[in-house]
Design a protein around this nucleic acid. Structure first.
Lengths: 114, 114
DNA sequence: GAAGGACATCGACGGACGTCGATGTCTGGA
DNA sequence: TCCAGACATCGACGTCCGTCGATGTCCTTC
């Protein structure tokens, strides 16, 4: 709000993440920042076929089917999961690009200090 | 709630993340799942000395000093930042171990599909 | 010791989030 | 054609989150 003022110490080298970049990645992290959703992604990623149907996923949690469906929708809306309906069942698979985008955050210079 | 029933497709190979592990990592992701906090960590990590004082950090955002202080507290409480008070100024530095813990999420088999 | 500045804390507000029960939609089989 | 099952959507509830202005705490300087 007030004038920027002058730096009191180091002028913060300019190689940091841009505001736009932060606004782009934050939703991906927010989608993953829940124990249930983290386990959902992990369950799907670690399945033998790389995908899993909702009926199997739900059995791993003490949560309502509506809640599991909600979490899967959040992950799908964030672009982290692909959705594929086959007959009565719906299969979810992880989108490697999305996970790579998040992983690159921690391997590049943007967040890695040393 | 009901009986687990029998799997309708693949039995979800058991190498997925445990519930405890998910509950441990989720708070770290939640702390990072905000554009402002993401930029704060990035600014600190990319500074020449690996640390930054609050007076410099605040200048990069159109937010109140109270809000910046709140975000820094969240990151500090999550174990992502170290706090060091020197005279009038307070310096924050990233904790490499914490970032490594998050980074390992995406490089290990827990979340990496391929 | 009085004053001013850097930062934290407090209390409040609006909005978003996680969860639920109930209901809707679609598919496959009797 | 009708029914049962799988999954999504809806509406509601309590809680948490991001932001702010105001105030408190600590340190330096005069």
């Amino acid at each position: 709000m007030s004038d920027p003022g002058l730096a009191c110490c180091t002028p913060l080298s300019g190689t940091a993440m841009s505001a736009d970049q932060a606004e782009q990645v934050a939703p991906l992290l927010k989608a993953l920042a829940d124990p249930v959703r983290l386990r959902l992604v992990s369950l799907i990623a670690s399945s033998a076929t790389g995908e899993a149907c909702v009926c199997d996923l739900g059995g791993a949690f003490d949560l309502t089917q509506a809640t599991i469906s909600h979490h899967l929708k959040v992950l799908h809306s964030a672009g982290l999961l692909d959705r594929d309906k086959r007959g009565v069942w719906v299969y979810y698979a992880v989108r490697p690009e999305a996970l790579t985008a998040v992983a690159s955050l921690f391997s590049t210079s943007a967040l890695a200090p040393a």
